[in-house]
């Protein structure tokens, strides 16, 4: 929690500024939207943080989302697969993708960047071919399944913001986050991941099966991305194979990095990743609500994230200096 203070502060600043500038920001409807979007991106952010913790990278997330996003309606609408078959099938597909990445990276010793970059291109092209590039959707069917993404649970009247409904994706995010945090911090496998992310060799010399753990990280990442793709598809209900999920890997990676994952590996906080994802969506939302021209949005998001990372780095340095001074004193004593 402590190391996420910086990003939490950034979140609070943007939140408060927007709320003051435009009161409709904190109405229930907008907050629901914001929470839903943040949750969707948070989910894929958690997935990629596992890979980043091992010191790897997964650039194919957006394309996996695109592939699952169009494979799902393709199976369900075009081939009339039942939900109970289609959903496991697409999740299995993403599992196979993750397994492929992991094996290529660990067994053939290919670079993760290269493997997943090729994945980015391959899955996108494959999805487009599969669906003939036709825009897909569920029309007005599958309302039940779509509740996973667009469902809302009424919480009644809340102070300041009125009748509030909790978006279902937020609950999914919470469950996933708790599972991920427990896995990472309370199980031996999580410890393995953190150790090998810092120093793969030392982990191997300590008897850790680093190969299996790295493969596991890529599998987790792809399966979570596939699950995210399913939710994104159910949310937007209009899936264009050529563009659906484009660049989402960058949102996910940015969220993970903002949340304290080091691209050098070995560091990561699930809570931070959730906040990181929320900041990105908060910024988009603020830009719209404050009436800032759309054309400026990338510039603003880039600048704010950079500012956040710089602040974080400065805070870390000050802390390190303090610790050094403290240690010097202890040594003298």
């Amino acid at each position: 929690m402590k190391k996420n203070l910086g990003i939490l502060g950034l979140f609070a600043v943007v939140f408060i500024v927007t709320a003051v500038a435009n009161p409709s920001f904190i109405n229930a409807y907008n907050l629901e939207n914001l929470i839903r979007r943040s949750s969707l991106y948070g989910i894929i952010g958690i997935g990629v943080s596992f890979v980043i913790i091992t010191g790897g990278i997964d650039l194919s997330i957006g394309s996996v989302i695109g592939l699952v996003g169009c494979a799902l309606p393709w199976l369900m609408i075009k081939h009339e697969f039942p939900v109970a078959a289609a959903v496991p099938l697409v999740l299995l597909l993403s599992l196979v993708i993750g397994l492929g990445h992991g094996l290529l990276i660990t067994r053939l010793k290919l670079q993760a960047f290269v493997v997943t970059l090729c994945g980015l291109l391959f899955y996108r092209g494959f999805g487009r071919w599969l669906t003939s590039d036709a825009t897909m959707g569920f029309a007005r069917d599958y309302e039940g399944l779509r509740k996973l993404a667009i469902g809302r649970i009424p919480l009644g009247e809340l102070p300041f913001i009125g009748r509030f409904n909790l978006p279902v994706p937020f609950l999914i995010l919470l469950v996933l986050a708790v599972l991920a945090a427990v896995f990472l911090n309370r199980t031996v496998y999580g410890r393995y991941l953190l150790a090998l992310g810092r120093n793969e060799q030392a982990a191997r010399f300590s008897g850790i099966n680093t190969t299996a753990m790295v493969v596991l990280a890529y599998v987790i990442c792809s399966v979570v991305a596939g699950f995210g793709g399913l939710l994104f598809a159910l949310d937007s209900n209009s899936i264009q194979p050529a563009s659906f999920g484009n660049f989402y890997e960058l949102y996910a990676i940015a969220a993970a990095v903002l949340g304290g994952c080091s691209l050098r590996g070995g560091e990561g906080s699930i809570f931070g990743v959730m906040i990181g994802a929320a900041i990105m969506q908060l910024l988009y939302n603020s830009i719209n609500l404050l009436g800032i021209p759309t054309t400026l949005e990338f510039a603003i998001i880039g600048a704010v994230i950079l500012a956040g990372v710089i602040t974080d780095e400065i805070v870390k340095r000050i802390a390190a200096k303090r610790r050094a001074v403290l240690q010097a004193r202890q040594a003298v004593v």
Binding site: S24, N30, N33, D235, S236, S243, N246, N288, G291
Partner: peptide, 24 residues
Amino acid sequence: DTRTDGFDFGKAKAQAQDAIAKYP
């Protein structure tokens, strides 16, 4: 206002939602 989304469907929907939120 006029909002552009650069053919990103997710964003296009988000912008519609944000407009609904901003202008009751």
